[in-house]
């Protein structure tokens, strides 16, 4: 566990000096604060901006950060050197994954504070929904980072995936076709579940889609990881 903590501490210092990663953790929470504070319409659905931006945050920040960090470490050979220092691949991945998860938490707490869940005493459910969504994005980001050799290919692969999961929840509000596709994605279900917290109507379908996505992300990561492990002594 000590190695995991060392990797987390390293990543904390590195991310703090890397504005291109840092911005992902800040952008949507700030947008959430601004829009929730500025736009207050009578007929607006409950937690409209919070659910929208939280879903976009879940679909973007962990996915892009994870893919970017892993691919940069591969490209610059820092990962290879780390693994020669007796850091096991699982320790490295756990360290980076835990860091990204924790780095997402301030944003999650901001959304939680802005949402009606804070008033209605459903903070735990709110945090749980977003946490599951973040873990799904982490797995997808890790799959991209592990599968790509460098940052450029990771960006080429990661941006379309990020756009899909981050922007479909928004598009689904304006377009029926997009909504039909979006209902199978975890980020859309995160949005729906947050919106449903206030009225207590949590659909089993939403929970099922969320966990099905979790399993698919996990399998995808596992397959790509094993494939890379076969090529190198790391990934």
């Amino acid at each position: 566990m000590k190695n995991v903590r060392i990797i987390m501490r390293k990543q904390w210092k590195d991310t703090w000096k890397n504005p291109t990663i840092l911005i992902h953790f800040i952008l949507f929470p700030v947008l959430g604060i601004i829009m929730t504070g500025m736009v207050k319409e009578k007929d607006m659905p409950q937690d409209f901006f919070v659910s929208l931006f939280a879903a976009m945050y879940v679909g973007m920040a962990p996915l892009i950060s994870m893919a970017s960090i892993l691919s940069e470490e591969k490209e610059k050979n820092t990962l290879r050197v780390l693994l020669t220092a007796h850091v096991a691949p699982w320790q490295y991945l756990s360290g980076i994954g835990s860091f990204v998860f924790l780095a997402c938490m301030p944003g999650v707490l901001v959304f939680c504070h802005l949402s009606d869940a804070a008033v209605s005493g459903q903070k735990t459910a709110f945090l749980l929904i977003l946490s599951v969504g973040i873990i799904e994005s982490l797995l997808l980001g890790a799959a991209i980072g592990v599968g790509c050799r460098n940052q450029m290919t990771a960006a080429s692969a990661g941006v379309p995936v990020m756009l899909l999961f981050s922007f479909l929840p928004m598009l689904s509000m304006f377009n029926e076709k997009a909504a039909k596709v979006a209902e199978y994605t975890y980020s859309e279900q995160v949005r729906i579940l947050i919106g449903a917290l206030g009225n207590g109507k949590i659909a089993a379908k939403s929970v099922a889609v969320l966990f099905l996505n979790l399993i698919i992300s996990g399998v995808l990561f596992g397959v790509l990881y094993q494939k890379q492990r076969g090529r190198n002594n790391f990934f």
Binding site: N3, K13, T78, L82
Partner: peptide, 28 residues
């Protein structure tokens, strides 16, 4: 016990010299 210095440095460019070495001092 093996020490390795590779052709590509494998150093964290945004981190200071001290921080780079501290990571490995902690690992070792």
């Amino acid at each position: 016990a093996v020490g390795i210095m590779m052709d590509s440095f494998g150093l964290y460019e945004r981190l200071s010299v001290w921080d780079n070495l501290k990571i490995y001092a902690d690992l070792y």
